[in-house]
Computed example of a mutant assay.
Amino acid sequence: MLIDYKNVNIYQHSDKPVLKNVNFHVDEGEFIYIIGRVGSGKSSLLKTIYFELDIDEADSATVLDMNITGLKRKYIPALRRQMGIVFQDFQLLTDRTVEKNLKFVLKATGWKNKKEINNRIDEVLADVGLSDKKDKMPHELSGGEQQRIAIARAILNKPRLIVADEPTGNLDPETASSIIQLLRQISQTGTAVIMSTHNIPLLDKYPGIVYRCADNQLEEVTNDFNKIQLAYDDDETA
């Protein structure tokens, strides 16, 4: 099991938990949506998974086989190398080409052989359908292309897990659909994908396991259309 949370309390800027008694489990190859209105705890949950937010209260909490309650900072880099992270705003380095963005990550994570680095970059760009964009600067790419490069960056080290925080939030519906399709393809290779989203209609087109954040709780609502619809209505009125 890649993630196993049992009765976890998650805090963010308050002495009251934003999510309490969280039970959340992720296995290899699963595609998981986290839904819920703004401020319901979606991003806070994801931040605990990629170690931007500490877990201090839990019966148990493991990520990638490591107990993360009171996790020492020295262990975080090695754990992060086993996961890819995709953000809504892409977070590409704007002063360098696509190729140099990807090369920067590989070198930072210990790759040294020049041929292996170049081959891996070519592989991931082919995977996301952007082999012809290697020499482009980020500002020369569309939003959808920038997000595909962000996904290419996330899969460079063949991660066991991808965490995607609102990856379609800045994209038009057609482009958003293509990004979800790409992430679904990645999950079919065995890499689990956890994705927060407000784009509820895509859940019907690309089914997965669905968890909803509401009222300081996280609950699985995969087959509960009413609760999924509530999340959609919340977003429409927020």
Rank of each mutant, 00 (worst) to 15 (best):
155 I>G: 00
167 P>K: 02
128 V>C: 01
87 F>Y: 14
90 F>I: 02
197 T>D: 02
206 Y>R: 08
110 G>M: 06
41 G>C: 09
3 I>M: 07
123 E>W: 05
87 F>S: 00
216 N>H: 15
174 E>K: 15
148 R>C: 03
101 N>K: 11
109 T>M: 14
171 L>Q: 04
121 I>E: 00
20 K>A: 14
14 S>C: 09
91 Q>G: 07
114 K>A: 13
210 V>I: 14
208 G>F: 03
85 I>E: 01
193 V>T: 07
202 L>H: 05
203 L>S: 08
65 D>C: 08
198 H>F: 04
85 I>W: 00
30 E>I: 06
93 L>R: 06
8 V>M: 05
118 N>F: 10
36 G>T: 08
232 Y>V: 05
238 A>L: 14
234 D>V: 07
219 E>M: 13
185 Q>V: 10
37 R>L: 11
201 P>I: 08
22 V>A: 10
152 A>F: 00
238 A>V: 13
137 M>K: 13
19 L>N: 03
134 K>V: 12
149 I>L: 11
83 M>I: 04
91 Q>E: 15
96 R>K: 15
124 V>G: 00
193 V>W: 02
211 Y>M: 06
90 F>D: 01
81 R>T: 09
67 N>W: 00
212 R>T: 08
44 S>D: 07
45 L>Q: 08
177 S>D: 12
51 F>W: 09
194 I>G: 02
72 K>F: 03
173 P>Q: 08
77 P>L: 06
83 M>F: 01
24 F>S: 05
174 E>M: 14
183 L>D: 00
114 K>N: 13
132 D>A: 13
84 G>Q: 01
61 A>T: 04
111 W>G: 03
46 L>F: 08
71 L>S: 02
26 V>Q: 01
179 I>M: 01
156 L>A: 04
122 D>S: 13
155 I>Y: 00
